[in-house]
Design a binder for these strands. Sequence first.
DNA 1: TTCTACACGCGAACAGTGTTCGCGTCAACT
DNA 2: AGTTGACGCGAACACTGTTCGCGTGTAGAA
Lengths: 242, 242
Amino acid sequence: MSPSRSPSPAQVRARAARLRRRPTLGLEAIVDVALEIVDAEGVEAVSMRRVAAAFDSGPASLYAYVANKDALLGHVLRRVIDEMELPSGGTWQERLRSWAYESRAVMARHGDVARLTFGTVPVTERVLDGIETNLTAMIEAGVPPQVATWALDILSLYVGADVFEGWLMSQRFDDGSGRDAEEIGSEYFEAVQREFAALPPERYPYLVRHLPLMMNGDSDARFAFGIDMLIAGFAAQIPAPS
Amino acid sequence: MSPSRSPSPAQVRARAARLRRRPTLGLEAIVDVALEIVDAEGVEAVSMRRVAAAFDSGPASLYAYVANKDALLGHVLRRVIDEMELPSGGTWQERLRSWAYESRAVMARHGDVARLTFGTVPVTERVLDGIETNLTAMIEAGVPPQVATWALDILSLYVGADVFEGWLMSQRFDDGSGRDAEEIGSEYFEAVQREFAALPPERYPYLVRHLPLMMNGDSDARFAFGIDMLIAGFAAQIPAPS
DNA sequence: TTCTACACGCGAACAGTGTTCGCGTCAACT
DNA sequence: AGTTGACGCGAACACTGTTCGCGTGTAGAA
């Protein structure tokens, strides 16, 4: 065979070099790269080309390990979920609460992975264990099973939505320039505040009066409050002991 | 001016015909088309080319009326929001509840518009009125203002997340073939049920025992339950009269 | 009636996207 | 030494959002 016509000698050399450098393309390595991109720029920034580029390769290479982009993102979500530590001990309320906090903290570390939790959550062992612990704690404390299962559903939904919304907010305060996100944030809040303050107070008395409360940016407190509301609601469903 | 070189006579005729047919491209007409696509296939199916095609035109034409795709989708969301009817009268609980139900019903009519409510909600008059009515009812009933504002935030988040998730679920049951969505749905549930039933009961006793409850597909009941939990939680925040 | 402005419409192009096909190459086994 | 098979991936297809700048049709001025 002649010294290669289509692939130039330079290409051949580059190929050999790359094969030595990278630890041979594989599912875990691919997910690593995708997760790095999600952490830094979010789910929408992940593209097959970009992930493949980390291996000095083209997008086609990935399809040997991953069915399609959705499947890749599914693996990313699985990876993140398996970072969560499960609660144990304590009352069912404490267990539910720390489970919610832990989920939120872990997801918040990884950009907008939370967006992927809508619709389907991969059923890993960790997920099953999480469900089982919480179900156990609740049912043994007298929470009706139907309430307990709904409770887990609703809490997950709320946690995911909160983290996702938080990420979207934070994005809005970064896109501007190189300035501090905090600074841009408060500037934005002031602008909105002015706009709302210009509303006719006779038509929107409560809204105008309690404006500062609405602009209160403490998202941690709001999240905690929401969780407490739900847990209180669940607790009220325990039938009185006869 | 020779008889047109680049544009062929056919093109010229087509152009004239189209100008007569469509009521001259405009923001409202564009939003109409986009909303139709969202209703039928979802937000992701909206593309500038496809919207423009409804006017027998190219994507560039839209940018005279809309800054970009996000802005277009923002207008779509505004349109949907302004379909909602506001509650009045009744206790604050009733008002909150019917507001949540109405929001859910309206958004559920329009594919996955709910997805657009994350991050930013357009501040229309209707939105302001909705906030004001609910704030009024709650605060006058003794709910602390901070609780009242958070309550509205959290309820909106929950409603949006629920509708969005519901749409994603429904999508999963349509994509298969031409069969009834209901049928595919129950088939899917049975498959999942079998998978879960195969779990070791000694490790997942509660999960396995209460499986039917988890698979319970009645999403309306679950939504109602969630709303009730939150409202009950809010109510518990009313300080005892001294 | 003729000419001139000007707003509006949009064709073409750019740089990206997910996914598939099928060719090449290399490693290990016979 | 020869063959086989797995793996990698270049190139192409059909799409995407967005911008530039060139017509064109209409309305007003002369």
